[in-house]
Computed example of a mutant assay.
Amino acid sequence: MTVETWRGWCMLRPGLLLYGGTVGTNRMHAHHAVQLLASAEPFTMADAHGALLTTKIAIIPQDVRHEIREGARDTLLALLDPRSSPGRALLARFGPGDTAASWSPTVRPASAEEARPFRFGAPPSGHTRAAEATAALRTVEAWTGHTAADGARRHPAIEAAILVIPTLLPKGPVRIRTVAEAVHLSPSRLAHLFSAHVGIPLRPYVRWLRMQRAIDLVAGGQTLTAAAHSAGFTDGPHFTRVFRDTFGNTPSELAAAIDWLP
């Protein structure tokens, strides 16, 4: 049976967007995040070529187009920053590719002894969903574990650029020349190093940061329009288009169905 709606709770932490509940269908989309999807019952996904995968566990790399054809209840969905320790570790452990056949894990998750508690922040205490959030965080930690991926280091100028870019988001378009001047590189050198060290060109990376910022503001109680402007989108329709391309749904479709945890 196809589950047409999304309904559950959602929690934001640095490097992590965590969702628990009913996962419905969505449209073909891609996001700059490593995705872990685990459910008590089978769900069906499709890749950009139309190949299908029916499974209870799926791991999808960043920037890979996919869609959910048939959803499931009692599902955990985690979106991990690919630069983060758990994001890199998840990719290192399972090595998924751009085809549906590669998204079903073939390696066991880390054991409790191997798992490492990443700094996502403590779950909310006293909230009605606190126990669910705690269990979900432990599940993500168990699946990511700790590997040599944690030893990766980036160029100092790229580390500086990653700190500078968020400060530019509310001011409108983020120009590569502006970022390059801030980190004392030429635009062409910055563009090359950024793609090499972050794994994505600067422009789509900025768009992903805007999306995260807008989601955070909506979670904090702002309207979709106010969140769109505060995150640097030109207007509400622009935000909606980018959101649909990123998550396969409109922001209004998900905002009304999600209980945002603090």
Results as ranks from 00 to 15, higher is better:
Gly97Tyr: 05
Tyr19Asn: 04
Phe233Ser: 05
Thr54Leu: 02
Ala58His: 10
Pro109Ile: 01
Ser104Gln: 15
Leu16Met: 12
Glu70Ile: 11
Arg177Cys: 00
Val179Ser: 05
Val140Asn: 04
Thr246Ser: 15
Glu181Arg: 13
Ala89Leu: 00
Leu137His: 07
Ala196Ser: 12
Leu80Ile: 07
Ile68Asp: 05
Pro251Gly: 08
Thr250Ala: 12
Glu70His: 15
Pro173Trp: 03
Glu67Cys: 15
Met211Thr: 13
Ala38Pro: 00
Thr240Asp: 08
Thr250Cys: 02
Gly145Trp: 04
Ile165Cys: 03
Gly221Leu: 04
Leu254Ala: 02
Gln35His: 12
Leu185Gly: 05
Arg119Asp: 15
Asp74Asn: 14
Asp81Trp: 03
Cys10Ala: 11
His238Asp: 10
His155Gly: 02
Glu41Gly: 06
Ala101Val: 07
Gly24Met: 02
Thr22Tyr: 00
Gly151Arg: 13
Leu137Thr: 03
Thr139His: 07
Ile215Leu: 15
Ala131Thr: 11
Arg108Thr: 06
Asp81Lys: 05
Ala89Gln: 05
Glu132Trp: 04
Ala219Met: 07
Gly126Gln: 09
Glu132Tyr: 01
Phe43Val: 09
Leu185Thr: 08
Leu80Trp: 05
Ile215Asp: 14
Arg93Met: 08
Gln212Cys: 13
Leu168Ile: 09
Val206Leu: 08
Ala135Thr: 10
Leu79Asp: 03
Pro86Arg: 07
Thr2Gly: 07
Ile60Ser: 08
Ala142Gly: 07
Ile60Cys: 08
Arg175Ala: 11
Ser125Ile: 09
Glu67Arg: 15
Pro14Met: 08
Ala228Pro: 04
Thr144Asn: 05
Ala58Asn: 08
Pro156Gln: 08
Ala196Lys: 13
Arg203Val: 13
Ala122Trp: 11
Val183Ser: 06
His32Ile: 01
Arg88Met: 14
Ala228Tyr: 10
Gly121Glu: 11
Val174His: 04
Ile200Gln: 13
Thr147Glu: 10
Ala100Ile: 05
Pro105Phe: 07
Ala182Glu: 06
Asp259Arg: 02
Ala256Glu: 08
Gly97Val: 04
Asp47Arg: 06
His155Leu: 12
Leu137Cys: 06
Ala148Pro: 00
Phe233Met: 03
Ser85Asp: 15
Ala148Met: 09
Ser84Gln: 02
Trp143Cys: 00
Gly145Val: 01
Gly121Lys: 07
Pro237Asn: 07
Arg203Gly: 07
Ala160Leu: 09
Leu37Asp: 00
Thr167Gly: 12
Ala92Leu: 03
Pro14Gly: 10
Trp208Tyr: 11
Ser85Ile: 11
Asp216Phe: 10
Thr178Cys: 01
Leu37His: 12
